[in-house]
Design a protein around this nucleic acid. Structure first.
Length: 566
RNA sequence: UGCCGGAUGGUGUAAUGGUAGCACAGCAGACUCUGGAUCUGCGUGUCUAGGUUCGAAUCCUAGUCCGGCAGCCA
């Protein structure tokens, strides 16, 4: 919709290609993750881009496992990737592929290059090759094996495949240009020997193609038209083009865009893997992680992620997106869709002195003020309630609208109460109980005399309260750009981990939540959006805080405190 | 310092030679049975210097700054 107005540069290129009939006017994209980790929100940007473009241009988008390195890849990751792409809302239909399905074809293309004198088997050890390749400022030197006869290379390459040589003994390289200022054009490696079992092809192969050789062929074989990738592959594009040109086969157009960086988190698979493996977080789906599995468990709806992707756009500028933008997308969606409920995270006992001990009644609460069709629900009420500890102050600061001695507030959906006193623990001084009297004529929440009450607080009937655990998440890191900071300051990234990224609180929820389904999303009034954890059940309710509500009181309070200090 | 990219408010982006706009964040106010939501208003920006042009964020030249590239990872 926004797109009709402002098309990103990639859509402009695709639209122009379609208009001019390039690739026969067809559009085929692909999302090619390597199954060596979980997908994160940076991948969501790429998934959203590729699948959306395919849909907009009546094309298709493939999901392809780029499994050319058996050493790091695992079946667990393949399943997780499929689950996450589906969850995000995309359907690859029958177009699910493995790069490893093309190993035989790739091998034949390699032999073709050798025969054409465009590739050779090189026996230089890695350290020696490094010497030969040289540095960007100076041309490299040619390998002594560079001009060996094609027949000799072909023989060696076949014996490489047959398993006659150990890992690292030799490689197949493209014969391109050792004096190129682009290091990747200095005879890049096409195949290496790896005696490793592959999760998909098993023990069939002991040589595996490198990214440079495999990727362009995967795209070509699948008839991809627009191969979208991130900026760091820009320097590989000449290799991509060279190989396809030598072979004279279908030649997709590679277009690079900037990867997503989000503040207060990390997006590199290496770092995420570290956090998981070192136990800094509780697995790949830890709600503090930017992984799709983590975001899902956190309660972030896939629609919010897609909207977020639309908001950030697609460019070639390396940038750091403020996580506040993501939070806005989350609140925007959840505000419209999450049913409301009352929960008390940090309970304080409230006794209504003039409410009979044995009485109880129910009030009707609105399920979602943004959606009248969501209806109402009954909420039980009695003499003793739990209220939020933050909602009572012995000495209220200026502009504090909540409960304090002598003050009147509204108990949401119930009635008006006026504070008459409180008990304190003689040892700690902590308030243990607050007493108040209610106005019987205010049943339902409004006073018959029309008097205004500034504060409305939420509550849970003590007699009906259901205990629950709340996991309150905060940003994982204390600095906006932890990866860069660690690099610049020569520190370890874990030094920037936020020690308060997870706080566990024990409180109560209203009884209607006792059967909250795992992963169901709620707004706990005045607190934030929460998601029932997958481990949550009738015996032990666990809610993860997705994001707080915007809280203008806490901002005001901070400002008042600051101005008092000066 | 070799090559390749990139520079628009605090952040993310739009404007493709013709009034620098949008979103987020921030601030001020209205409204409110969520200090939520909603509504209204406000401020801040074209990296620098020249040039072309009636007119430049856009084109040209020079410079500055930032990112990427020296895995048999992707």
């Amino acid at each position: 919709m926004q797109r009709a107005k402002a098309k990103d540069f990639i859509r402009q290129i695709v639209a122009e290609d379609v208009r001019r009939g390039v690739f026969g006017g067809r559009v085929v994209t692909r999302f090619p993750p390597e199954p060596n980790g979980y997908l994160h929100i940076g991948h969501a940007k790429a998934i959203h881009l590729n699948f959306s473009i395919a849909r907009e241009f009546d094309g298709r988008c493939h999901l392809r496992m780029d499994d050319t390195n058996p050493v790091t890849e695992e079946p667990e990751f393949i399943e997780a990737i499929k689950r996450d792409v589906k969850w995000l809302g995309y359907d690859w239909g029958k177009h699910f592929y493995h790069a490893s399905d093309y190993f035989e074809q790739m091998y034949r293309f390699a032999e073709e290059l050798i025969t054409k004198g465009k590739a050779y088997v090189c026996e230089l050890p890695p350290e020696v090759w490094k010497e030969y390749r040289g540095v960007p400022e100076k041309p490299g030197r040619e390998s002594p094996f560079r001009n060996r006869p094609p027949a000799e290379s072909l023989d060696l390459f076949r014996r490489m495949r047959a398993g006659e040589f150990p890992d690292g003994a030799m490689v197949l390289r493209a014969k391109i240009d050792m004096s190129s200022p682009n290091l990747h054009m200095r005879d890049p490696v096409l195949y290496r020997i790896l005696h490793a079992e592959h999760p998909h092809t098993g023990k069939k192969w002991c040589i595996y193609p490198t990214y440079d050789f495999a990727h362009c062929l995967e795209d070509s074989i699948e008839g991809i038209t627009h191969s979208l990738c991130t900026l760091e592959f820009e320097v590989h594009r000449p290799v991509y083009d060279w190989i396809l040109d030598q072979l004279g086969i279908h030649h997709p157009k590679q277009i690079e865009f900037a990867r997503l960086n989000l503040s207060y988190t990390v997006m590199s698979k290496r770092l995420l893997t570290r956090l998981v493996n070192e136990g800094k977080v509780n697995g790949w789906d830890d709600p503090r992680l930017p992984t799709l599995a983590g975001l899902r468990r956190r309660g972030v709806p896939p629609e919010a992620i897609r909207n977020f992707c639309d908001m950030i756009g697609v460019t070639r500028v390396d940038s750091l997106t403020d996580v506040a933008l993501l939070e806005h997308a989350i609140r925007d969606y959840l505000n419209r869709h999450a049913p409301r409920a009352m929960a008390v995270i940090n309970p304080l006992r409230l006794v209504i002195e003039n409410y009979p001990e044995k009485d109880e009644e129910t009030f009707q609460a609105v399920n979602n003020p943004e959606d009248p069709s969501a209806g109402t629900r009954p909420v039980p009420f009695c003499r003793e309630l739990f209220i939020e500890r933050d909602d009572f102050r012995i000495e209220p600061p200026p502009k504090y609208h909540r409960l304090a001695p002598g003050r009147e507030v509204r108990l949401r959906y119930a009635c008006l109460v006026t504070c008459t006193g409180f008990d304190r623990d003689p040892e700690t001084g902590e308030v243990t109980t607050v007493y108040c009297r209610y106005d019987p004529r205010s049943r339902g929440g409004s006073a018959p005399d029309g008097r205004k009450v500034k504060g409305t607080i939420h509550w849970v009937s003590a007699r009906h309260a259901v205990p629950a655990v709340f996991k309150l998440y905060d940003r994982l890191f204390t600095v906006a750009d932890p990866a860069d900071r660690a690099k610049e300051e020569g520190r370890d990234i874990t030094e920037f981990l936020n020690p308060h990224s997870l706080r566990v609180a024990r409180g109560f929820v209203e009884p209607s939540l006792s059967s909250a389904a795992p992963l169901s999303r709620w707004q706990f009034e005045r607190l934030g959006y929460f998601c029932a954890d997958p481990d949550s059940g009738p015996r032990a309710l666990i809610f993860n805080r997705t994001v707080t509500l915007r809280d203008s009181w806490s901002r005001l309070e901070k400002k008042l405190a600051a101005s008092r200090d000066t």
